[in-house]
Amino acid sequence: MNIKNNLSTLIVSVQNRPGVLFRIAGLIRRRRFNIESLTVSHTENPQLSRFTILVRGDKETVEKMSKQLYRIVEVLKVSDPKDVEIVAKELALIKVSIKKDGSRVEITNIANHFRARVVNVNPEYMILEVTGNEEKIDAFYENTRKFGIIEFVRTGRTALFK
């Protein structure tokens, strides 16, 4: 079961060498998938990096592509887990206007409800940080929109197996 239709999370473990990102991205491009999000980082083993890739496309093609990913010399393991098998989170930063009277209090209440943290405040706007799954972040965005969103960024999904 995936949060949205046609979305797959690919978790790719790779030997940490230059050029891997390029080759992985190239393969995904060749299959004409859209990358919804992509995160890369070191892992507990400094020689290994981990890619978490959220792609949109039909399941069968994702499976074929997963096998082709193994052709990349540095790729150690490709998993295409179901959502129930993983803990997946992302982080978003949001810059909201507080120019209108009362906005600040109201936003803080919403933030508390979403367990978002205030990371920066000035007379014009505040910056909030929120983590969670995609739906939670979407909902937080919707709730703060009316105050005027100046900037919004999200990291994309990163995940661990349960």
Binding site: P18, G19, F22, R23, G26, R30, R71, V73
Partner: peptide, 14 residues
């Protein structure tokens, strides 16, 4: 060269 040939090689190096 690594960029240009990445998709037509089994592997490549700089």
């Amino acid at each position: 060269v690594v960029g240009v040939t990445a998709m037509v090689t089994k592997h490549n190096y700089l």
